[in-house]
Design a protein around this nucleic acid. Structure first.
Lengths: 202, 202, 202, 202
DNA sequence: CATGAATGAGGCTTCATTCAT
DNA sequence: AATGAATGAAGCCTCATTCAT
């Protein structure tokens, strides 16, 4: 019997390496050699564990997505299942409370990934998948408050605000008053969900 | 004697070339040769009119910014100076009504630029400048409704929502219900500005 | 009848431009555009007055040579025709008294030209011509002291010392004690010419 | 595991390639592709082993310097430690006996390097270092004959003569009577060291 | 004579990927 | 699994030279 596979651990290291380098250099400028160095591995090993550079990126997208979902799940677990309104806020908090402020590298990478998704079909595919899933999750939570009516539109708006905060936080550090993102988005949610509903526009 | 300068015209063509190519390939993958071809010029000429590739990008940032400001100015011109509330909506419309839907290449480029701003200091500098100016403009308009209190925070939230819509529109076409962006952000503004103000959180 | 030709003046400016740029950048790195700028002219004009870049260089070689010959002639004119020994010293002074110390750009250019002569046949041709002529001149002056015997060898040695001082002065400023070159070479000449002659080696 | 490093061997090959090409084309015209071809390697590999083209040049400077020092050491080893006068001659022989005549490529490269030192600060730095060290060595040897008095000046003169012979030998083959360099410089040394000392000039 | 735009070749360098060990 | 050398294709940029005006 050979030695136990450490493939999963190596892949983990490499993905972490990409996260770090991509946050400061972007995807195209993150060379495989640099990623390997950041991971403490040799360049050749990267292609032993990944078909190509893009596969690392795709894996990173899924990991970042999984991470945020864990945070969402954790927050939802602390909220009563019947309190539909609080569940929406929990979702928003999961994305913004720790996200924008606490893990700049992840945010920077995420924004970079969003831009890559525009141009690389395979990145777009997976990016679209996780975004749609998250958005649908939020839509569900919103729908529990409003009924299906307008749930999609409201969810999209709140989701957009979240993504926008990511962009601004990553691109112009210091622009957004620290800690203000969660509160503001929650207030946006309040305006969209709790106020007397304005008539649907055409 | 000599020949009349056509530098400005050439620079225009080249910047337009970058816009086009960058929208489909991203900045790093937009080769100078391709940009030149898109502009109908020879590769060498690009560097006759621009110091380097980055200078084209910086010029593009300024142009895109100038374009949206014209739209803002145009919309504001149609609104009574005293109607502070309507002026906020005019600003939002200027960014979203034509922006996200009508000019996909510009939106895609803008999102790409946002990501580049994270990594390239010189891009960040100009990106930050134009973003700050636009945000301050919005803050002013918001302040005319709310007083200075919370104007910054509210403006940042609305601006984030706009940027987020850009990202989603560019990265996942079809995700955002067409035409819904303006209405939703205006409703966010309504929620933040017109409703009974919730107490400021810590 | 057209306007009077200013060709000669323009050529002069351009050659002076090359001298300046070449002293700080070397020949290959001295771009025609830069030369033109240093000359206060437009790039196109350079090729109107010179066939190509090399022709400027060849012209410069001749000019530098002409300049030093004027200095030689001037010094010789002040020395009695019969004083063969003094005439040798006058020659050495003409090369070193003002040369190494007073006109660093000319010295730097001359050293650069010596290196170019190794690789460019056409440069070598003219370089060789002027060097041979100068060397023969010195040989003649030396021969008037020693007789033909060993005149060539002695002249070559003194000439080498001069060239070597140029190299050292240009490449390592501060290495040669200022003002020491002339004196030392004259003392070398004294050693070779005035001392009891050692027997010729094989 | 892995493969044994052969970097040092490859670097050797590449430096040798530069030496060969530079001797016939000069530094700027020695393209990396040509250097690689001369070394029997692929172009990309050159930059795997060297940061850039200049680093190859800097390495070459050190190697040429090391080579001549070995020759100096070898000659000095054959001379009695007390015979200060003979030690000076040994130094001169080490530079000229085999140098100017036996290895034209090395001499041509050295002259080219001297010219590059004028223009490239990093080349100058290392060139200056090795030249100063060699000159100081000679100064020491000379000082053992004359006492400190004038050692610097005399050493500089002899060193200049050596460099000058290199230039003339490389730029105008056939100009210097073959084999005459060593003898002449040694006679210069004799003149400067053995003759009744002329009074120091100001 | 003069200008400055235009061309196109070529140079240095980077880099994803492959491969011998 | 792992190493690090090797390859070859681009990419950005520079530049001598030409040419329309």
């Amino acid at each position: 019997m050979g030695r136990p596979s450490n493939s999963e651990e190596r892949r983990q290291q490499i993905v972490a390496g990409l996260l770090r380098i991509m946050a400061e250099r972007g995807y195209e400028r993150a060379s495989v050699a640099e990623i390997a160095r950041a991971a403490g591995l040799s360049p050749g090993l990267v292609h032993y564990h990944f078909k190509d550079k893009q596969e690392i990126l795709l894996t990173l997208v899924e990991q970042l997505s999984a991470r945020v979902r864990e945070r969402v799940a954790a927050r939802l677990a602390r909220v009563k299942a019947e309190d539909a309104r609080a569940r929406v806020d929990a979702f928003l908090e999961a994305f913004l409370a720790t996200g924008a402020d606490a893990d700049p590298a992840a945010v920077a990478s995420w924004v970079t990934i969003s831009a890559e998704a525009i141009q690389q079909p395979e990145v777009r595919a997976i990016y679209e998948k996780v975004v749609r899933e998250d958005l649908e999750h939020l839509e569900e939570l919103v729908g529990a408050v409003t009924g299906k009516r307008r749930a999609r539109t409201v969810a999209a708006g709140l989701f957009a605000a979240i993504q926008g905060y990511f962009v601004l936080a990553a691109s112009v550090p210091g622009l957004v008053p620290p800690g203000s993102a969660v509160g503001t988005v929650k207030r946006m949610a309040a305006g969209l969900l709790d106020a007397a509903q304005p008539p649907e526009e055409a």
